[in-house]
């Protein structure tokens, strides 16, 4: 199971529980909701001023869009919410609803109408499926099948995927002629592999590397926030990272290919209640799909960087992205 996308930070420190919080509490949010709803309403007015888009969403029932408790989900939530608002749909954005289990519960109990989800996480954490899909398309299809049995569905997936990945310094890769994870095999125990402590015990981790690639390096636990520092300082030779990490921009690190897909498929797609989809009309799904199609790995890395490193707000970052791509 990859726990990460269920709430990346929760491994580091918090609580998916943190989130547990909002999931069910959204209705009471005298305090919590004001910031997010104000930010979304401000964007809708500004986009209305832009005036280029028609408003097929006008008069449709209002919906509530949730997202999970880490930066990338906040960005995705803001992107989908603002794109819908630009088309005249009435959207309330609930940030930080919680981990996958919790946000899915919020969806099935009707507290939210949709949320962005990683396909692999949906399968492992929500559907509790034990077998791994063989391709990104299969993952999306299996997730969709599961959801449709339970009154929801999955819209189009993003081109980007946010899974675990192994990164090295380019110099180390050149020296050892590394392209794919399989190339690590000859290094054996001499090489140090860093990762969060639970990486050692996961199939999408040390166990899978051994069984699928025969790669058996010396494992060193490294806190997630120190991952890149550990690589740079030479504490480790290879490090578990995430494909969408902002640090991967600019070529300071090399990501090794994973041809056997040990790390699974983690593309994102909006999970939406079928009843909502029907009530909102075709423009609703169309709008969301247009947004998803834009989300390449470079795009999400840049936006992650703007939020996690430059500390800009997810709402602002999303607004600029949509505006630049004619969806704002």
């Amino acid at each position: 199971m990859t726990g990460r996308r269920m709430g990346r930070r929760s491994n580091v420190m918090v609580s998916a529980t943190a989130a547990l919080a909002l999931a069910l509490a959204v209705g009471l949010a005298a305090c919590g909701s004001s910031s997010s709803s104000s930010s979304s309403s401000s964007t809708s007015s500004s986009t209305a001023a832009g005036g280029s888009s028609s408003t097929p969403g006008a008069g449709k029932p209002p919906i509530t869009l949730g997202d999970k408790n880490f930066a990338e989900e906040n960005i995705l939530g803001a992107l989908y919410a603002q794109a819908l608002e630009a088309k005249g749909f009435k959207v309330t954005l609930k940030d930080n609803v919680g981990s996958s289990e919790i946000i899915y519960k919020a969806l099935s109990t009707g507290r939210i109408d949709m949320y962005p989800e990683y396909t692999g996480v949906l399968l492992s954490a929500v559907a509790e499926q034990k077998t791994n899909p063989t391709s990104a398309e299969a993952a999306a299809q299996e997730a969709k099948t599961f959801l449709e049995k339970h009154g929801s569905t999955l819209l189009d997936t993003t081109p980007f995927y946010d899974s675990d990945a192994l990164a090295t310094l380019p110099s180390f890769a050149t020296k050892n002629n590394l392209k794919s994870i399989a190339d690590l095999k000859p290094l054996g125990k001499k090489a140090m592999l860093g990762g969060a402590p639970e990486f050692a015990t996961r199939q999408e981790g040390v166990l899978g590397l051994k069984s699928e690639y025969g790669v058996d390096l010396t494992f060193k636990p490294i806190a997630i926030e120190l991952a890149y520092k550990a690589l740079e300082s030479g504490q480790v030779d290879v490090q578990d990272v995430f494909t969408t990490d902002a640090q991967l921009l600019g070529g300071k690190f090399k990501v090794l290919e994973d041809p056997k897909h040990v790390f699974g498929f983690q593309n994102v797609a909006p999970v939406v209640k079928q009843s909502v989809l029907a009530a909102e009309g075709p423009a609703f799904a169309e709008t969301l799909n247009k947004v998803s199609a834009l989300l390449t790995i470079q795009a999400i890395q840049q936006m992650n960087k703007a939020v996690s490193i430059d500390k800009q707000s997810a709402a602002t970052v999303a607004k600029q992205f949509l505006a630049a791509n004619g969806l704002g």
């Binding site: 269920m6 709430g7 929760s10 491994n11 529980t17 981990s99």
Partner: peptide, 25 residues
């Protein structure tokens, strides 16, 4: 301290619902 990312106490479980589920928390 587990919330701040220091591991090595019962708080680790509470701070890691992802691994332990709510029953563990």
């Amino acid at each position: 301290a587990s919330l701040a990312g220091f591991s090595g106490s019962l708080g680790d479980v509470i701070a890691n619902e992802t691994s332990y589920h709510f029953s563990g928390v």
